[in-house]
Structures are given as structure tokens and as C-alpha cells.
């Protein structure tokens, strides 16, 4: 049964949930960009362009301490893991594409080894997705419909909220979503059939507004056949080698593990890494199997459209368009992939 909530009641709902010990992460505007931050008393953004940094950082932070190292007399004597938290997490206002991306991370972090840090946070979390609606979404770089997504995709979400003007049409998708409905109590009321129809309509309008299209058919074959093609030199010539495309990608998941000593206290932490960095692949012998940016750019495209599917059975791209939007030199993933197909022809 679809429910609805008035926009001016949202803060009240969040207060109720905060009282239930929920850690709430929500989109906040900061110096012109949208970021997911831990919510205090402020009102989160309800209409926003997709965040600069994907919400994956809530479950897989850019810097995460794994354990403290105890040192006595210059000898390592033990390691203490920080206690795992148990309070529930609420991710409020995620975009559907970012939640589809979480499926890739879920598969990765439970692949051959269950990553306790990630899984713990994931299990504690409840996700409220916001369907993309005009005018803020979709952005000109969005192409989720080409890679199996939708502006109102329910994958990976516990609730889907659709903005129909002064209220949200609320759809609970899982038991966790049902719990939120329960806690919200009378803040949620029955949605009229008109409202439900309106929600369908706005999603439809948003879908129609997506202008970028990528035909994924034949991509794998094209990539497999063009590995050594000069084509990859061509488009990567203007690449800067910065890591924007990967650090902002909702499905990128490479990390690096480092020990560090800060003012005499040692710890081990993991941080995001990027295949676009020269030092990502460097060996201890100083040999670098991906010495130039062509190799690194090619790796990114191959990982998204070939390796990910081979390894995890999921496409590595959800079409959020961040790498297109963020690239300083306009390396456009759609153009690159379509170009590879052209080469094969």
C-alpha cells in the first residue's frame, strides 16, 4: 500500500528516527555542491542534483581505521580492533543509480571473503531512495536507462519516495522500510490513487528527459577484440591522469592498506585508491605494468564493462554520469565505449 508524507513533516520524521538512535546521513548543500553528511539539526536537501561524491562513502569510507597497533619498546605487541557499532544507519535521499551501485559493492565485499567493516555497516542500514524527478534530475550526463537502471529503480533500496510537489509518495519495499513506516506513525498517511498516478507520471517524465544513450549490445565483444588497438592511445591523449572519474564513481571500490604512525600511535587504515594513479600498479621492483595513461584509462573502461561482469556477474556502470560530468577534459565514457564498437566495425 502506498503511503504519503508531506514535505514539511520530513524534519519531524527525521527527529523521531534520530530519537530511535538512527545515524542519519542525508544530502546537504555545501559551497554549491551536494554531499552526504551526517545530519544534525539542519534540514536536508529534498530537491537536489546528484551528490558530487556518491553515498558509498557511508559504508565504505574513504579513510577507515582497521585497527590500532600497540607498540611497547619498539616492538609490536598487539592489535586492537575498534568496537563495531550497532546503532542503525539511515541513508536518507539516495538516488536510485547509487543504490544499484551498492549491489556491485555488496557482491565485491562478500565475494571470496566477507569484509566485516563494510558488511557490518551495510547490515545496519536502511535506505530511503528518492526517485529522480525534474527539474533537478536527470543531469545532462545521466544515462542509467541504458545500463539497466531507471529513474525510479527500487534495487538496493528499502523505501522509494517520489516527489510529487508538496508531498512524497512513499513506497515501502522491505521489512526495514516497514519499520520506518511504523516509527513514523501518523506522519505517513494513505496516498490517494491520484497521487500514485502522479508519482508514476513524474518518473516517466524524468525517464523521458534522459538524453544520453548507450547501446550495451556488442560492447563486450568490442572490448575483447580491441585491447591492443591504437584507438586507446587516441582518446587517452588528453587524459590528465587525475583520479576524479574513479574516486567519484559509485561502483569503484579499489582500496589501499597502510600502516601509519601519528604522534607515536600506530594504526592500520584503508583508503580509497584509484587505477588512474601511476603508482597504483607499481611493483616492488619498480616495474609498472601500466606505465602510461592509455593503459590506465583502458583499464577503467574494461573493468566497468567487461571484468566486473566476468567477476561479479554485474555490469560495473550504473549510468550516474559522474565521470562524464566531473572530467576536466571531457572524456566521455559513452563516447569511448561507442567508439570502441566503431573500431571493431
Amino acid at each position: 500500500m502506498a503511503k504519503m508524507i508531506k514535505k514539511d513533516k520530513v524534519r519531524e520524521l527525521l527527529d523521531k528516527l534520530a530519537n530511535e538512535k538512527f545515524d542519519i546521513f542525508a544530502p546537504i548543500g555545501e559551497d554549491g555542491i551536494t554531499l552526504y553528511r551526517k545530519l544534525g539539526a539542519e534540514t536536508p536537501l529534498l530537491n537536489f542534483q546528484n551528490s558530487s561524491k556518491p553515498p558509498k562513502e557511508i559504508f565504505f569510507p574513504q579513510t577507515e581505521k582497521m585497527f590500532d597497533i600497540t607498540v611497547e619498546n619498539h616492538r609490536l605487541v598487539g592489535a586492537t580492533e575498534p568496537p563495531m557499532a550497532s546503532n542503525p544507519i539511515l541513508l536518507f535521499g539516495a538516488r536510485p543509480c547509487d543504490m544499484r551501485a551498492m549491489k556491485v559493492l555488496d557482491a565485491l565485499f562478500t565475494w571470496d571473503y566477507t569484509d566485516p567493516y563494510y558488511v557490518n555497516k551495510r547490515e545496519r542500514s536502511t535506505v530511503i531512495s528518492f526517485a529522480c524527478t525534474l527539474p533537478d534530475m536527470p543531469r545532462e550526463s545521466c544515462f542509467c536507462t541504458s545500463v539497466g537502471g531507471a529513474t525510479d529503480s527500487r534495487e538496493g533500496a528499502d523505501m522509494l519516495w517520489t516527489d510529487i510537489g508538496s508531498e512524497f509518495v512513499v513506497e515501502s519495499l522491505t521489512d526495514k522500510g516497514g519499520k520506518i513506516l511504523e516509527l513514523g506513525g501518523n506522519l505517513f498517511t494513505e496516498a490517494t490513487p491520484d497521487m500514485q498516478a502522479k508519482a508514476k507520471q513524474v518518473s516517466q517524465e524524468a525517464t523521458e528527459a534522459i538524453s544520453r544513450k548507450l547501446d550495451t549490445e556488442g560492447v563486450k565483444e568490442a572490448l575483447e577484440a580491441t585491447f591492443d588497438n591504437a584507438y586507446w592511445d587516441e582518446f587517452s591523449a588528453r587524459c590528465l591522469g587525475c583520479g576524479i572519474c574513479t574516486l567519484l564513481c559509485p561502483t569503484c571500490h579499489c582500496f589501499d592498506i597502510n600502516d601509519l604512525v601519528v604522534e607515536g600511535k600506530a594504526s592500520r587504515e584503508r583508503t580509497w585508491d584509484s587505477c588512474q594513479f601511476t603508482y597504483y600498479t607499481i611493483h616492488a621492483s619498480n616495474h609498472n605494468p601500466r606505465p602510461v595513461k592509455k593503459h590506465r584509462q583502458r583499464n577503467r573502461i574494461y573493468h566497468k564493462f567487461l571484468y566486473s561482469e566476468k567477476n561479479l556477474g554485474l555490469l560495473g556502470c550504473v549510468g550516474c554520469g559522474r565521470c562524464i560530468y566531473g572530467c576536466p577534459v571531457n572524456i566521455d565514457i559513452i563516447e569511448v565505449v561507442e567508439g570502441a564498437k566503431e573500431v571493431l566495425k
Partner: peptide, 12 residues
């Protein structure tokens, strides 16, 4: 606190 250290400012 916002910096993600993509080093794009250096690379550009």
C-alpha cells in the same frame, strides 16, 4: 575537510 585528494589540481 572536503578534499578527496584526487590530485586533479596538481595534474591539471
Amino acid at each position: 575537510s572536503r578534499c578527496v585528494r584526487c590530485y586533479a589540481c596538481r595534474d591539471a
